[in-house]
């Protein structure tokens, strides 16, 4: 639902208003040429016109390292589940990253549900913002360029103002009472439409086959040897997993206090491109070579999870491609392998 326009000069007031009573997470300058999601000291730091961040906003719902349970050891052991229900507002989330959170909801909600994830997720107000792509983005080809309904409040840059849409009751409540909203004129709607057009036009059509075809095409390329060429320069650094907004694998470990009477069970993001990830009890490594690991990662993104949950588990955010020291782009990898004879 479109509710009005915030003139850019009032943006800070608007953000203060909708985030009242919440920890403010937003995009800010990190170092020259790079921005990041972080807890902001002031809404003045907020940057809404940006392309991408090293880590996705997922990091504030599903942190890189988190404590799952605290334990008191000894004769009467106690276990306490740690749930973080801090009310947060995450401001400046792009449509691809909103889709990613929706996909995490699905995969982490499957079976038993992940209480740690959902505690933060349900406590967070998501404020999305529209964007323009760079050469690595391909949201337009995996169906994530628009994110209607996937956040509470959505902002679109319409020149001198932001168009404000509320897509949830929480979003409406958050915006309610803000005095500075201006009327949405036909010119504003036209500007928003033109902006989306510009975004879509700016996305290089990288994928050679329609995304719907990928599960079928990839089924024919299950041999690790077919992925050797595309993986040749991979250093198995795991960056592509660790920066991905939809990757959700983790490693669990315990940290015991020196007194040996207290301990914390923690988890840390993990990734299938790391050799150790595929090391199991008994010393067996079930995906020994990097071609096999890259094959698996691509199959997960564009085949297995697609078939299982109905959408590709890649939002086209381009982070893996931007981060890869070997310059491996998932779309180029998929194009190259699916174009070859199986």
């Amino acid at each position: 639902m479109t509710v009005g326009c915030v003139p850019k000069g009032r943006l800070t007031d608007f953000v203060c208003h909708i985030c009242r009573g919440r920890q403010l997470i937003g995009v800010r300058q990190k170092e020259p040429g790079f921005v990041e999601f972080a807890e902001l000291d002031s809404p003045d730091e907020l940057v809404l016109d940006y392309v991408s961040t090293p880590l996705p906003p997922k990091a504030f719902i599903y942190p890189p390292i988190e404590t799952l349970v605290r334990m008191r050891l000894g004769t009467a052991p106690q276990v306490e589940t740690v749930l973080d229900e801090t009310p947060r507002a995450i401001v400046g989330v792009h449509p691809c990253d909103l889709h990613a959170l929706a996909q995490l909801d699905v995969i982490l909600g499957d079976h038993y549900g992940d209480p740690h994830y959902f505690a933060r997720r349900q406590s967070a107000l998501l404020v999305g913002v529209d964007c323009l792509p760079d050469e690595h983005c391909f949201c337009g080809q995996v169906g994530t360029a628009r994110a209607e309904g996937k956040c509470d409040v959505f902002l679109t840059d319409v020149g001198l103002a932001y168009l404000v849409e509320c897509w949830s009751d929480e979003g409406r409540e958050a915006v309610e009472g803000f005095g500075g909203l201006e009327e949405v004129t036909p010119a504003v709607l036209e500007a928003a439409r033109a902006r989306m057009e510009r975004k879509l036009a700016g996305i290089e059509p990288r994928l050679s086959a329609p995304v719907e075809m990928l599960p079928m095409l990839l089924d024919g390329h299950q041999k690790a040897s077919e992925w050797e060429d595309v993986a040749a320069k991979c250093v198995s650094c795991g960056a592509c997993n660790l920066v991905c907004p939809t990757c959700n694998c983790f490693d669990v470990y315990d940290e015991v206090a020196l007194s040996l009477t207290e301990a914390e069970r923690k988890r840390r993001w993990d990734g299938c491109m790391l050799r150790e990830f595929t090391l199991v009890a008994g010393g067996e490594v079930f995906r020994e070579g990097k071609p096999d690991r890259l094959r698996h990662r691509m199959q997960r993104k564009y085949n297995y999870l697609y078939v299982r949950y109905g959408s590709p588990f890649c939002t086209g955010c381009g982070r893996c491609a931007r981060s890869c020291p070997a310059g491996i782009h998932p779309v180029s990898a998929v194009n190259q392998v699916t174009a070859s004879e199986s």
Binding site: C237, A239, L242, R268, W269
Partner: peptide, 11 residues
């Protein structure tokens, strides 16, 4: 790299 990425560093 794993620890580096988890910190959100620019590579």
């Amino acid at each position: 790299c794993v620890e580096c990425r988890l910190k959100g560093n620019v590579c």
